[in-house]
Nucleic acid binder design. Structure first.
Lengths: 225, 225
DNA sequence: ACCAATAATTCATCAGATGACTTATTGTGA
DNA sequence: TCACAATAAGTCATCTGATGAATTATTGGT
């Protein structure tokens, strides 16, 4: 019954602070609602609202009857962070997204070529083979493809790229029509060329391979609209 | 006291559905919590949690004592979509963010030079003057500066850039030390050069001006760490 | 030792009460 | 009549307590 300030918005900050100070890692379990209420010195409803906020930001996961946990994957990265849901003109959206990839990804590829470790290259090889297998087997490879590009972003050792790049890629993958035989073989070849360039620390080669890949993607999209 | 399914996650969907079917626009007011509870046939706490979720997605805005409204600006774009809160190494983060701006913003500037309308140019001029005035008066101009760059992104007439660019800029502005006299005069001059180039549809000029601006920013950050 | 029944834990939701903030209304004095 | 202060109404913020529902741990019998 005591209330002074709109402590609403700050409760999720308190919760984030609790997570950070207790050094909780993805997968860890939080105290239950009653205990959190005591710890943060707020009511349970307030705790629940804060938790809901962090769930929608993909920081927490709630399992009824089990508990509340720190998100395992892409912690803090939301599904539609750019609000693309509310953009109407989907065709122009596809080209505009590709425009962004054209600006970002060749640079990412070059950075990856500069900074990739041997482990990075090994993981890239594995993902490359996986995507190739899926394409040849005619199974949807969107998820794996995003993972491949995300791994390149990680290999750049830029802290933000691994979070940013998948957002754009995920969005644009909705528009790619992968029945195109040319695009399939092109994708397989370009992925191989990309990994080769990165393995050889060939920045220009990696950048060019990525640019070429995106041009094919753009042609694919334009031919289907 | 009747509960069958985890209707938790779906309540915000019900709310979104209500917004869409009633064709509510940014700025419109929602019914109060009690009425929403009746309409959606759930309890008030459940409504509040759904609202909290949509607030954190920047779809709704809540004003205590006044009501709940549809967000006016950047509807659906979240504050920290890239989860930067959880990145520890803030100094490397600053440089990595700038790396992304280096890839994106010169391209944005070039697109703006290509596609800006007369109205765009007029608005840019106004914002340029506003930033200049704030800098000369030694008042914090971060917000206005982000608005200026956002307007450039809008002038590019790319659908995604106006949502993406401010996210990066906002994050990086935390690291810029604006007491630097050189950076101040440089910012004023570069902004003017940018608007001039865009007004003249000079893509290379706009791109170069932006690149120069970012190099100064990078030097500023590196000299302070 | 295995497996089913039971208990404990935890989240999901509802309902009611009170505080706090905002806006509209009203009343009083100049 | 106008301005301004006091009041009232509307709305969100939060706390508390109770009950349903799902998961997990415990227990007891064979």
């Amino acid at each position: 019954m005591d209330t002074q300030k709109p402590l609403a918005g700050t409760t999720s900050d308190l919760l984030i602070n609790y997570i950070l100070t207790h050094n909780l890692k993805p997968g860890d379990k939080l105290p239950n609602e009653y205990k959190l209420a005591e710890i943060l010195e707020v009511g349970r409803s307030t705790v629940r609202e804060a938790v809901k906020t962090l769930v929608s930001r993909n920081v927490l996961e709630v399992k009824q009857g089990s508990g509340t946990f720190i998100s395992e994957t892409s912690m803090g990265v939301t599904d539609d962070p750019l609000g693309l849901t509310f953009i109407k003109d989907k065709e122009k959206l596809a080209l505009d997204l590709l425009e962004i990839r054209m600006a970002l990804e060749p640079r990412i590829a070059a950075l990856a070529a500069a900074n990739a470790t041997a482990e990075d290259v090994a993981e890239l090889r594995a993902l490359e083979q996986e995507v190739k297998a899926l394409i040849l087997a005619d199974i949807d490879h969107t998820e794996c493809d995003v993972a491949f590009h995300r791994k390149i972003a990680e290999a750049s050792h830029n802290l933000v790229m691994p979070n940013l790049a998948p957002i754009i890629q995920q969005a644009i993958s909705l528009f790619l029509v992968m029945t195109d035989r040319v695009l399939k073989t092109e994708t397989i070849e370009t992925h191989a060329a990309l990994v080769d360039s990165i393995a050889n620390h060939d920045q220009l080669g990696a950048s060019d391979a990525m640019t070429l890949h995106l041009i094919y993607n753009r042609n694919n999209i334009r031919s289907h609209m």
